[in-house]
Protein backbone atom coordinates (compact mmCIF):
# COMPACT_ATOMS: atom_id res chain seq x y z
CA UNK A 1 0.00 0.00 0.00
CA UNK A 2 1.20 3.52 -0.77
CA UNK A 3 0.70 6.08 1.99
CA UNK A 4 2.47 9.18 3.32
CA UNK A 5 4.78 10.04 6.18
CA UNK A 6 5.75 13.39 7.67
CA UNK A 7 9.35 13.60 8.80
CA UNK A 8 11.72 16.21 10.18
CA UNK A 9 14.47 17.64 8.00
CA UNK A 10 16.85 14.91 6.83
CA UNK A 11 14.18 12.18 6.83
CA UNK A 12 14.23 11.91 10.61
CA UNK A 13 11.21 10.59 12.49
CA UNK A 14 10.03 13.48 14.68
CA UNK A 15 9.21 11.48 17.81
CA UNK A 16 11.79 8.68 17.84
CA UNK A 17 14.69 10.44 16.11
CA UNK A 18 15.05 7.48 13.73
CA UNK A 19 16.79 8.42 10.50
CA UNK A 20 14.93 6.81 7.61
CA UNK A 21 17.07 5.42 4.79
CA UNK A 22 16.32 7.32 1.59
CA UNK A 23 17.65 4.51 -0.64
CA UNK A 24 14.30 2.68 -0.65
CA UNK A 25 15.49 -0.03 1.73
CA UNK A 26 12.87 -1.61 3.97
CA UNK A 27 12.57 -0.87 7.68
CA UNK A 28 10.81 -3.30 10.02
CA UNK A 29 9.23 -2.60 13.40
CA UNK A 30 10.73 -4.69 16.22
CA UNK A 31 9.22 -8.19 16.44
CA UNK A 32 6.77 -8.60 19.30
CA UNK A 33 6.74 -4.89 20.08
CA UNK A 34 3.68 -3.64 21.99
CA UNK A 35 0.63 -2.25 20.23
CA UNK A 36 1.33 1.13 18.72
CA UNK A 37 5.05 0.48 18.20
CA UNK A 38 4.76 -0.24 14.50
CA UNK A 39 5.55 2.12 11.66
CA UNK A 40 3.08 4.96 11.50
CA UNK A 41 1.94 6.62 8.32
CA UNK A 42 -0.93 8.70 6.99
CA UNK A 43 -3.71 8.19 4.57
CA UNK A 44 -4.45 11.46 2.77
CA UNK A 45 -7.30 12.15 5.20
CA UNK A 46 -4.85 11.97 8.17
CA UNK A 47 -2.24 14.38 6.83
CA UNK A 48 -3.29 17.59 8.58
CA UNK A 49 -2.91 16.03 12.05
CA UNK A 50 0.82 15.37 11.64
CA UNK A 51 2.31 18.16 9.55
CA UNK A 52 6.10 18.27 9.55
CA UNK A 53 9.02 19.61 7.57
CA UNK A 54 9.23 16.88 4.93
CA UNK A 55 6.49 14.80 3.37
CA UNK A 56 7.40 11.40 1.90
CA UNK A 57 5.52 8.82 -0.11
CA UNK A 58 5.96 5.47 1.61
CA UNK A 59 5.22 1.87 0.78
CA UNK A 60 3.76 -0.20 3.61
CA UNK A 61 3.89 -3.95 3.80
CA UNK A 62 1.99 -6.52 5.86
CA UNK A 63 -1.28 -6.07 7.72
CA UNK A 64 -2.38 -2.46 8.13
CA UNK A 65 -3.85 -1.30 11.42
CA UNK A 66 -6.38 1.45 10.86
CA UNK A 67 -6.66 4.20 13.49
CA UNK A 68 -8.63 7.41 13.57
CA UNK A 69 -5.78 9.70 12.52
CA UNK A 70 -3.06 7.33 11.30
CA UNK A 71 -2.31 3.85 10.06
CA UNK A 72 0.28 1.42 11.32
CA UNK A 73 2.28 -1.27 9.55
CA UNK A 74 5.05 -3.69 10.48
CA UNK A 75 7.28 -2.81 7.54
CA UNK A 76 7.79 0.25 5.35
CA UNK A 77 10.18 2.06 3.08
CA UNK A 78 10.46 5.62 1.84
CA UNK A 79 9.83 5.96 -1.87
CA UNK A 80 10.27 9.63 -2.67
CA UNK A 81 9.89 13.04 -1.11
CA UNK A 82 6.89 15.16 -2.05
CA UNK A 83 8.78 18.15 -3.32
CA UNK A 84 5.64 20.18 -3.98
CA UNK A 85 5.12 20.59 -0.21
CA UNK A 86 5.23 24.33 0.43
CA UNK A 87 4.67 25.21 4.10
CA UNK A 88 4.26 28.92 3.33
CA UNK A 89 1.44 28.21 0.85
CA UNK A 90 -0.27 26.00 3.42
CA UNK A 91 0.00 28.73 6.06
CA UNK A 92 -1.54 31.22 3.60
CA UNK A 93 -4.48 28.85 3.05
CA UNK A 94 -4.98 28.52 6.82
CA UNK A 95 -4.77 32.31 7.24
CA UNK A 96 -7.45 32.77 4.55
CA UNK A 97 -9.69 30.20 6.27
CA UNK A 98 -9.25 31.87 9.66
CA UNK A 99 -10.00 35.29 8.18
CA UNK A 100 -13.18 33.82 6.66
CA UNK A 101 -14.17 32.42 10.08
CA UNK A 102 -13.57 35.85 11.64
CA UNK A 103 -15.73 37.50 8.98
CA UNK A 104 -18.45 34.91 9.65
CA UNK A 105 -18.35 35.50 13.42
CA UNK A 106 -16.60 38.80 14.20
CA UNK A 107 -15.50 38.27 17.80
CA UNK A 108 -12.42 39.41 19.70
CA UNK A 109 -11.34 35.78 20.07
CA UNK A 110 -11.38 35.19 16.32
CA UNK A 111 -9.58 38.48 15.71
CA UNK A 112 -6.85 37.16 18.04
CA UNK A 113 -6.59 33.95 16.02
CA UNK A 114 -6.26 35.95 12.79
CA UNK A 115 -3.41 37.96 14.30
CA UNK A 116 -1.76 34.84 15.72
CA UNK A 117 -1.95 32.64 12.65
CA UNK A 118 0.04 35.13 10.61
CA UNK A 119 3.03 34.58 12.90
CA UNK A 120 3.24 30.79 13.10
CA UNK A 121 4.64 27.81 11.18
CA UNK A 122 2.62 25.27 9.19
CA UNK A 123 1.85 22.75 12.00
CA UNK A 124 0.71 25.53 14.30
CA UNK A 125 -1.30 27.23 11.55
CA UNK A 126 -3.17 23.95 11.03
CA UNK A 127 -3.98 23.88 14.75
CA UNK A 128 -4.94 27.57 15.04
CA UNK A 129 -7.25 27.41 12.01
CA UNK A 130 -8.94 24.33 13.51
CA UNK A 131 -9.44 26.07 16.84
CA UNK A 132 -10.81 29.10 14.98
CA UNK A 133 -13.30 26.79 13.23
CA UNK A 134 -14.54 25.62 16.63
CA UNK A 135 -14.85 29.23 17.82
CA UNK A 136 -16.74 30.31 14.70
CA UNK A 137 -19.09 27.35 14.41
CA UNK A 138 -19.60 26.62 18.08
CA UNK A 139 -19.28 22.86 17.68
CA UNK A 140 -16.42 20.63 18.81
CA UNK A 141 -16.61 18.56 15.62
CA UNK A 142 -15.59 21.66 13.67
CA UNK A 143 -12.03 20.90 14.79
CA UNK A 144 -11.86 17.56 12.95
CA UNK A 145 -13.85 19.00 10.04
CA UNK A 146 -11.24 21.72 9.60
CA UNK A 147 -8.42 19.15 9.67
CA UNK A 148 -10.34 17.26 6.97
CA UNK A 149 -10.60 20.44 4.88
CA UNK A 150 -6.85 20.95 5.26
CA UNK A 151 -6.18 17.36 4.18
CA UNK A 152 -8.23 17.92 1.05
CA UNK A 153 -6.28 21.13 0.40
CA UNK A 154 -3.01 19.20 0.77
CA UNK A 155 -4.18 16.42 -1.54
CA UNK A 156 -5.15 18.95 -4.20
CA UNK A 157 -2.11 21.23 -3.87
CA UNK A 158 0.40 18.38 -3.68
CA UNK A 159 -1.36 16.09 -6.13
CA UNK A 160 -1.46 13.22 -3.64
CA UNK A 161 -3.08 9.89 -4.35
CA UNK A 162 -3.20 6.72 -2.31
CA UNK A 163 -2.56 3.53 -4.24
Amino acid sequence: MIAFKWLSRGAIAPFTGFRWPADRSWVSAPQGAPEGSGIHACRVEHLAWWIGEELWRVELDGPILERETQIEASRARLLDQVTLWDPAAFVRACVARTEAFAAEAPTAELADYVALIKTVDAPTASFVASVAAVAARGTKQAFAEERAWQARWLARALDLREE
Partner: peptide
Protein backbone atom coordinates in the same frame (compact mmCIF):
# COMPACT_ATOMS: atom_id res chain seq x y z
CA UNK B 1 8.94 4.75 29.29
CA UNK B 2 6.51 3.46 26.64
CA UNK B 3 3.70 3.01 29.16
CA UNK B 4 1.03 5.19 27.56
CA UNK B 5 -1.90 3.48 25.85
CA UNK B 6 -1.93 4.10 22.10
CA UNK B 7 -4.82 6.61 22.28
CA UNK B 8 -3.08 8.79 24.90
CA UNK B 9 0.22 8.51 23.04
CA UNK B 10 -1.43 9.63 19.80
CA UNK B 11 -2.99 12.67 21.48
CA UNK B 12 0.33 13.57 23.11
CA UNK B 13 2.21 13.32 19.83
CA UNK B 14 -0.44 15.36 18.02
CA UNK B 15 0.11 18.06 20.66
CA UNK B 16 3.88 17.91 20.08
CA UNK B 17 3.35 18.55 16.37
CA UNK B 18 2.31 22.16 17.04
Amino acid sequence: EGRLPIEARTRLEQHLVY
